[in-house]
Nucleic acid binder design. Structure first.
Lengths: 353, 353
DNA sequence: CTTCTCCATGGAAACGATTCCATCATGCTT
DNA sequence: AAGCATGATGGAATCGTTTCCATGGAGAAG
């Protein structure tokens, strides 16, 4: 274990000052002669600048933080791969944390990132705007992915999602009024996705359509309500907490309490999985007894029998774009992006009988 | 965006020296009076020590790196969750990178970690020992998880896996002979898992059993060969590269070239998925026409019809233990750990006909 | 030939923590 | 009462980089 060469070593060996070495290595001006020599010596010594020193000097860690609820959920795995891909091509490291959909853990992780000097985060938020205000106040560049904080004010204009506004409650003395800060986000077009699914089910004759949601599916349930139109049968809209057990319990409870339902929209792949399992357990046949549409196109959707009809959203792209946004921050104010969803019809929906 | 308070601010506000603040905060000796005052001031200023400064001084970043091939693979998602859980409880950040099973990318990522000053890594290795030697030479504490480097010398004693030896080729001048360096690892008991599966299939009457492997499944294929005994029908042992497409192609090719096979052991969940898909495409019924055992117990194994019989390995535990090992490094020399596997019989295997 | 400008260059000051070491006060032993 | 040990405390060095600023030399313009 030999210690690594420092910039000082390089400077010495090349017979120049450290400033010159630094300039050469970071593309500043230097005479061709010295540039060449420095480069040669650096290569020969296998010199790699220490991120530690640089970060301290520049008062920020490079790279970005990534906060997801649960990597065991294939969708978040895809999203993470997207972020990682972008990070790799930008040469930026990625700090990962999972929050288990718990605002408290999320808050803790934000603190950890702050401590690490990470000032760029892409997050699938679990907590509300309150959880995120400290981060933004601390000057973090935040980009939300896949979701918005539960209580964020989202202008529901017909043009789609606009930039999210978080009220930044400054100390009353400093500013006359609270200043709005907008956080960009990369989202799937949940509204269109859900609407398409509901219309598809309607077209098959289904009237009693249930919605099975989990944490963070607020936009989806809103879209569902809108698509179904009044009156919404509230018993057919159920929510589970994040765990697989809870999802199963919710699905099972739904099927048992309302045997009259004929179709289910599961708002995420964990919920879809739970619905399939619960249906099987209760001897409900898909799609004969109940039709199922699942959000997220995961590889195993095709393995089910029948293969699951899904609302596909581009998990990897969402991650990649979010990472792009958070890295470009500062250039021009990034705006939120909405990516299209697609209804992929396979075999889990049938006509109402 | 107000800048964060530094240790100097705290010292000033508390009327003490920075050294005292540092001591109080890191548990050194201090009089109860000053300790109290410093703590109060720190809390009041919302002071959080910057990891940047600390890391530079101590010449190492805290935290650990995590290298996995692909987060889209549920098993690695589980593993990552384990690492994250351990990191969280130890208060250590985790730097994530995925390698796509490409030694070159892996090597690049190791370089990145080195640059970041990360000196502890837990890795699912893709490259050989050569890829890892530089890391170890640089003083990194490495723990392998789930696999060993392809060409690592693994003493195949009957007691199970022993510490992995990587020959550390020092400059010949410095040391008289190459010095062995051992890298601990956390593995599943592949040998037992595969053996159990093969015996189970044998017990059902299967004689022509195929093995469908991917990158990093060397230990599993070795175990397969051992379990099957001589002579091994080499046409029944096929390998695919990491992608889902390649896995599908391999599975499909296998079924087509050897219609006489009656059972398949898939060495990972991506391969299992591919096998199911390929079988369906070729109108082979599971388990009537072909029996299938898959490595990895992923949630969706139960969703298949019939539900998949699997060799379960504790992905989350593997990650957690590996993280523990890499964090404890230095205390007492960590030894490699082998965790048990379990054959979970569901419906994808039937008697040979 | 002088003066002005420009550029390459190196010294030194940050950045925010930890930690060595010297200092000083206190209380105890002899 | 003097000397000594103990413990609290603050100043300053240090980690490896970037960046500001001053210096010096060379070439151009007058």
């Amino acid at each position: 274990m030999e210690k690594r060469a420092t910039i000082k070593d390089v400077a010495e060996a090349a017979g120049v000052g450290v400033a010159t070495v630094s300039r050469v290595l970071s593309g500043g001006s230097a005479s061709p002669r010295t540039r060449e020599r420095v480069l040669a010596v650096a290569a020969q010594l296998d010199y790699r600048p220490s991120a530690l020193g640089r970060n301290l000097r520049q008062r920020r860690t490079g790279g970005m933080g990534l906060l997801v609820p649960d990597l065991t959920d294939t969708f978040f795995g895809q999203l993470a791969e997207g972020v990682l891909a972008c990070g790799r091509s930008a040469g930026e490291p990625v700090l990962l944390a999972s929050t288990a959909d718990d605002p408290e853990q999320e808050s803790e992780m934000i603190g950890m990132l702050l401590e690490q000097g990470v000032d760029r985060v892409i997050a699938v938020p679990s907590g509300g705007a309150d959880t995120w205000r400290p981060a933004i106040r601390a000057g973090m560049a935040v980009v939300f992915a896949d979701r918005l904080p539960a209580d964020a004010a989202e202008p529901a204009g017909s043009t789609g999602v606009r930039d999210l506004m978080l009220l930044d409650g400054l100390p009353a003395a400093a500013e006359p009024a609270a200043r709005p800060v907008d956080v960009p986000a990369v989202l799937a077009d949940d509204r269109a996705g859900i609407r398409t699914a509901v219309r598809y089910l309607r077209g098959l004759g289904h009237r009693r359509i249930a919605f099975l949601g989990g944490p963070g599916h607020d936009r989806r349930v809103a879209a569902f309500r809108e698509a179904v139109g009044d009156p919404v049968d509230e018993e057919l809209v159920v929510f589970a907490t994040g765990s697989r057990d809870a999802a199963y319990a919710a699905a099972s409870g739904l099927f048992q309490s309302r045997p009259d339902l004929s179709a289910v929209v599961a708002a995420g792949n964990v919920l879809g999985e739970a619905a399939v399992l619960a249906a099987r357990e209760l001897d409900l046949r898909v799609p004969r007894d109940v039709s199922l549409v699942m959000y997220d196109d995961v590889p195993w959707a095709e393995l089910c029998s029948p293969p699951l009809t899904v609302i596909a959203q581009p998990g990897r792209d969402i991650g990649y774009r979010a990472a792009e946004l958070v890295l470009r921050t500062g250039a021009r104010r990034p705006r939120t992006v909405v990516l299209p969803t697609e209804l992929i019809v396979r075999g889990s929906c049938g006509p109402h009988r």
